[in-house]
Simulated scan of single mutants.
Amino acid sequence: MKTIKLSLVAAALSSLFAVPALAADVQIYGRAHLSVDSLDNGVDSGTNVSSNSSRLGFRAKTEIEGGLEAFVQIEQNIRFDEGAGSWASRDSFVGIRGNFGTVRLGQFDTPLKAVRGKVDMFGDRIGDIRNLTRTSTSGSTNANIGNVFDERYKNGVHYQTPKFGNFVFDIHYTPHNNAGATVDNVQESYSMALSYEVKGFYAAIAYETFEGQNGLDPNALRLGAYYDVTSDFRVSGMFQSASDVPGGDRNVYGVGASYKMGDYTLRSQYYVADDNDAADSGASMLVIGADRRLGKDLTLYVAYGITSNDDAAAFRVSAGGRDTQLAAVPGKDSSGLSLGVQYNF
C-alpha cells in the first residue's frame, strides 16, 4: 500500500468561516486479484477468467480533541474481468476510536465473518470455506434464505473493546439489513465475537443471529483457530453449527495447513458439511495449492479443489469471494483448477 498524505487546508473556507485548518492522513489502496479457472460441475465444464474480491479503497484518519481519532473508509468491488464495479459496495464506514475502544457505522463484515477470514487458507480463491458455510443445498447465495452467513450487513453499528490481556470483544448490530427506511425492523441481526491473539496463535468464538423468513431466525456458532507450529508451518481449523435454517441444522468443520519454503508456500485444507434434515445432503471439500511471491506485493498461485456432493447436495467449489462462479448440480462433484495473480497496492 502506498500512503498519500494530504494537507486538507481549505484557505477560502477558513477565511469565510474563521475555522482552523484541519489535517488528515489519506490512504489510497487496492487489490487486483484475478484467476484463470477451469471449472467443472460434473455435467458441463469451461474456462473462465474471474476477478476475486478485487477492490479500490480510500481511508482517512484525523486526530481530534481528547485523544480521539476519527476515521473513514470507502471501499468498492472492482470487476477487472468484465470492466465493472460498484461504488462503496465493500466495507465502507465512519467511526471514532480512543481508549474506550472503537465505534463504527456503515456497511462492513460481521465479527462471525472475520473469524473465517483469519483461518481460511484459500480465502477468495477456489476452495474458500464459504463454499460450505455460506451456500444452501440448492446452491443459492441469497441471504434471505437463512442458510447464509459470512455476510456484509447494511446499516451496521459496531463496537470493539480495547485489548484486555490480548482478548478483544466485538459486537455488531444491524437494525435493518436492507435498503431504505423501516418501521418494523425486519431482518434485524446481531453478531458478536470474543477473540484471543498473540504472535503465532489465534482463537475466537463467534455467534450470529438474524431475523429470516417463514418464521425462521437463523443463527450460527463458530469456533476458529490457527497455530504456528514453527515460523514456516501453520495449522488452522474451524467449526460452525448453524441452527433454525431451512432444511434443518447443519455443522461444518475442517482443518487446513500451510508451509513456507522461501518465496513458495504450499497450502491445503479439507472441510465437511454434515447432512441436515434431508438424507444425503452433505458434502466434503478438498483443495490444495502453491503460492509464489514475487516481492511483497505480488503473488502468483495455482490451486485445485473438488467438492464431493452427496445425492441431495449441490455445494460449489468456486463460490466465496469470487465474481465468477459455476452453479453446482445436485449429486455431482464440483471441481476447479485455478491459476491466479494477486497484486496489492
Rank of each mutant, 00 (worst) to 15 (best):
T102D: 05
R234P: 04
G248L: 03
V19L: 03
Y29K: 13
Y173T: 05
S335E: 04
S241N: 12
L13P: 08
R125S: 13
Y259F: 04
D244F: 04
P162T: 06
A303T: 01
N41Q: 06
M192H: 09
P175G: 13
K260P: 01
P175R: 06
G305A: 08
Y153I: 09
A273K: 11
R104F: 06
D323N: 12
N177S: 03
S86C: 06
L326P: 14
T307A: 09
E151A: 13
A10Q: 12
T137Y: 05
V272W: 01
L68E: 15
D263V: 13
P162E: 09
L8D: 14
S236K: 00
S243Y: 00
A84G: 15
K2N: 14
V287Y: 10
N185W: 11
G224A: 08
V252K: 08
G30S: 11
K118S: 12
A303F: 01
T141R: 15
D232C: 06
N41E: 10
A143R: 15
L39N: 02
E151L: 14
K199T: 15
Q73F: 10
A225H: 02
S92K: 08
V19T: 12
S86F: 12
Q325T: 11
N77W: 09
L216Y: 13
E82C: 08
Q76C: 02
A70H: 05
M238N: 08
V119S: 13
E75G: 09
D37R: 11
A319V: 02
S51I: 11
E151R: 12
E188Y: 08
R234C: 03
D249M: 03
S338A: 08
D40L: 02
N131I: 03
E211V: 12
G295R: 07
F122G: 01
F17S: 07
I28S: 03
R250Y: 02
T299I: 13
G340L: 08
S258D: 11
L300G: 09
G123N: 15
T265G: 03
D263I: 10
